[in-house]
Structures are given as C-alpha cells and as structure tokens.
Write a protein that binds this DNA or RNA. Structure first.
Lengths: 145, 145
DNA sequence: TTGTATTAATTTGCAAACGAATAGTTAGTA
DNA sequence: TACTAACTATTCGTTTGCAAATTAATACAA
C-alpha cells in the first residue's frame, strides 16, 4: 500500500462525510417542517448561547466569513427569529439577539439535532473520539503555517 | 466529560477541517496562477483517470449532484480543458474527454496537489489512517439507514 | 405497437462560500 | 488637532449545492 497521504482518500472522505451529515440534518429539518437551513441553525445555536454576540465573533465561532454571516442574519431577521441592536459602546457593531420566535425555534430544533448527533456517533467510544480529535486537529495544524 | 456525541464538536471539527483544506488548496492554486477552483480540479482529476466517463458516473464519484456537474463542465468546456462527445450507444449520454490543454493542466497541477496532501497528513502514520477511515466510515454508515 | 416508466442531462431558483472593494466608525499617533 | 491605520459590516461577482421541473432518449410491459 502507498503512503496514505499519496491517495486522494482523506480529502475525499472528509468531504463525503460532512456532506452526508449536512444532508441528513437538512432532510430531517424539512421532514419536521422546520423552515431552516443547516447554516441558519448553526447561527441560531451560537446566538442562543451567546446573546448579544457581535457578527465578527459569530463569524469566528462558525468559521464563516463576514459577508456570509451578514447574509444569513439578513434571512433570520426577515424570518423574525433574530434581531440586530446597535452596540452602545461601538456604533460599528451590532449585538445580535434571539427574538421570542427564535427562542421557540431553538427549543424545538435542539432536541432533533441532539438526536442526529447521537445517531451519527453511534457505537464509537471515548477512545475513538480522542483519535478523531487528534487526527483532525493535526491536519488542521499542518495547514496553519 | 459528557458523551462526545452530545457536543457539537464532531460536526464542527469536520466542517472546519474540510474548509481549511479547501482554502489552502485554492490559495495555492491562485498563487501558482492556476485559473481553477478546487471543484473544477476534482472533476479534471476524475476525467483524466477515466477518459470518456459519463456525467452521471462523474457525479457519483465526486458525490456531486447532476446539475453541479453540468455547470462545472460548462465552465471547463468554456476554458477549453474538456470536451463533451455524444455517446454512440446512448444519445442521452455524453462521454467526457480531456482536451490537450486539459492534459497539460492536469500534469501541471497534480504535483502541487500531491505536495499539499503530504503536507496535510504530516507525521500521521498508517495506524492513524486506519482509525481515521474507520471512524469516518462509521459516521457515514450510521447515517445511511 | 402503443403506452408507461426510467434514465441522462439541463434549467431555474434559492442558499451559501469566498474574495475584493467600499462606507462608516473608532483608535492611535504625530 | 489632524492624519493615518484598523475595524465592522455591507455590497458585488463568481462558484457550488440542493430541489423541483423539463426535455429527450431508452427500456419495459400490456
């Protein structure tokens, strides 16, 4: 066997796996009648846990870029799930808050997401998790210099 | 510590890692003056290894959907890298071939991609690779029923 | 043979990713 | 104070993903 780094496998496997996860999440959302994309959910999740967060911080936490966050928030605002309030200290910033409807969405969707996470992890154990984190972090680090 | 499946970590880690890889690849392409996106490269790579392949098969191999393949091929055709020939047996199908310019692109880009793959895998070893494949496949399988 | 169901590829619309450029605000410095 | 640099968010253009609908060709069954 050739050295693993010489095959397309690892890029491809990561790509395929994340697509699968996103796909399952989205289908489950649709079936449950949630009018929500996966990326919109990710933002709601972060706002729920960090009320008043700025767009920049949101971008960091989700590894999305600023324009992407702006546009997803536009959609969430239009749906009445989220609110932009101008920051008191710095008028360049917005503080992002969940609206009551957004809270309700968060409470409704969270259990479904948790269930999907559990399903995906299945019978894998703590040790697997440690391997997983170590390998992913290592790849990430190898590309960060 | 809570059960790993209960945290957002694994979805998030996979997402972050694949973004990083794509990002590095694209930047390296741009720096090298390749007028090529990562996904365009993925298609070229598959066509190079399977001259005459159909669009459907291409979609399967890359886990992209048919419209996406159509659009990426449109771009590659416009760039003169790839050619659609109508199939002899089935006139609904196209057989996809690399044009001379496409061959040249393939030969030029491949070494760069191989170098990036090596960099990403770094000091990880065979055993790590087996863990990696097992865990990713497991997650994928857990979502395929 | 006719009709129905599949299949291959395309088109369209919406969501998202990324980069470059821009406007407005704030901070730091000469 | 005035100038410059840095920061926050937005806009724009190009590319990709997914779903639904469409067109054209093929396969199968009555």
């Amino acid at each position: 066997m050739t050295h693993p780094s010489d095959s397309r496998a690892y890029f491809f496997k990561i790509d395929t796996t994340i697509k699968k996860i996103r796909n399952v999440l989205q289908k489950r959302f649709n079936d449950a009648g949630f009018d929500l994309t996966v990326d919109q959910w990710v933002l709601i999740d972060h706002v729920a846990r960090n009320q008043g967060i700025s767009q920049n911080t949101l971008a960091e936490l989700t590894t999305k870029d600023a324009p992407t966050v702006t546009r997803i928030l536009d959609l969430l605002v239009k749906k009445g799930l989220v609110e932009r309030r101008m920051s008191e200290e710095d008028r360049r910033k917005f503080n992002i808050f969940l609206m009551p409807e957004g809270e309700k969405t968060f409470e409704t969707v969270l259990p479904v997401v948790k269930e999907i996470r559990r399903q995906g992890w299945g019978e894998l154990n703590e040790e697997d998790y440690e391997h997983f984190v170590r390998i992913m972090d290592s790849i990430y680090q190898n590309f960060s210099n």
